[in-house]
């Protein structure tokens, strides 16, 4: 059981190649972190896995527990078990958080089957308590007027509610103060399970103090250039990304 990315290449519509052969396996039960400098292709990788149509996969494959999802629509990938926590979550004016999450859950049910509203709210409130979110939040429009921290917390709430098989968190730590980071990490750690794989994309080692990864990968210029254990993150923090440019690594 794993999310398997093999020799993935992707370009922009203008032909610029962003991913230049990424190979990565995230087995269920493990947390992997990808670090790398700006422009290395980290965020693009997360979007390509989610199916964003601005990127054209030109080679390679993405399989989820053995099923090739490369040709699936964005929404079908989500329903198959992929969750992308956005770096910059969109606002959806006029749609309350409660209705938004409900619509996402409803999309996972067979036609004609309705969500039990009482059980839904009970579950929603319990997860909101975990993330220390005010009840008023359910009636507010999705991400509208939210602080950076509230938006990220909202992403984690959606992730918990949708209970995906594989979570990809794109720079979830950016824009968070230390208290918000701890709360978000608590939510992510609560999701750790032998049945679930996670991919953390981050620029800084700080996040990994709160969410301990099993493996760390370094991405540069559209490829994974180095993989190792948690100690690799500390090494990067200490030496900076420049050490990747040393000839030994070329």
């Amino acid at each position: 059981m794993s999310l398997q990315i093999t020799n993935l290449h992707a370009t922009l519509e203008n032909g610029t190649e962003i991913l230049k052969g990424v190979t990565l396996e995230i087995p269920a039960g493990e947390i992997h972190a990808i670090m790398g400098p700006n422009g290395s292709g980290k965020s693009t990788l997360s979007k390509v896995i989610a199916g964003h149509e601005a990127y054209i996969p030109t080679a390679g494959s993405i399989t989820l527990d053995g099923q090739d999802i490369s040709e699936m629509s964005i929404d079908a990938r989500s329903r198959a078990g992929i969750f992308l926590a956005f770096q910059y979550p969109n606002e959806v004016p006029g749609v309350s958080n409660a209705n938004f999450i409900r619509a996402a859950l409803q999309a996972r049910l067979p036609k004609g089957e309705e969500i039990d509203a009482v059980a839904y709210y009970k579950h929603l409130y319990a997860q909101m308590d975990l993330l220390e979110m005010d009840r008023k939040f359910t009636a507010r429009a999705v991400n509208e007027g939210f602080s950076g921290g509230e938006k990220k917390r909202n992403e984690i709430l959606q992730m918990i509610m949708l209970d995906p098989k594989y979570c990809i968190l794109d720079e979830t730590d950016s824009g968070l103060d230390i208290d918000a980071l701890k709360i978000v990490a608590k939510g992510v750690n609560a999701m750790r399970s032998a049945n679930r794989g996670m991919l953390l994309i981050t620029h800084y080692q700080r996040l990994l103090d709160y969410i301990k990864p099993d493996h760390v990968h370094v991405m540069a210029e559209g490829r994974i250039v180095k993989s190792g254990g948690p100690e690799l993150a500390l090494e990067l923090e200490e030496k900076g990304y420049d050490f990747l440019k040393e000839p030994a690594l070329a």
């Binding site: 989610a50 199916g51 964003h52 149509e53 629509s73 964005i74 929404d75 989500s78 329903r79 969750f83 992308l84 956005f86 979550p89 969109n90 959806v92 938004f100 619509a103 996402a104 999309a107 996972r108 959606q158 949708l162």
Partner: peptide, 12 residues
């Protein structure tokens, strides 16, 4: 906007 909702499993 559509991408965000689709990424939550909602059809376009």
């Amino acid at each position: 906007e559509i991408f965000y909702l689709q990424a939550r499993g909602i059809d376009p």
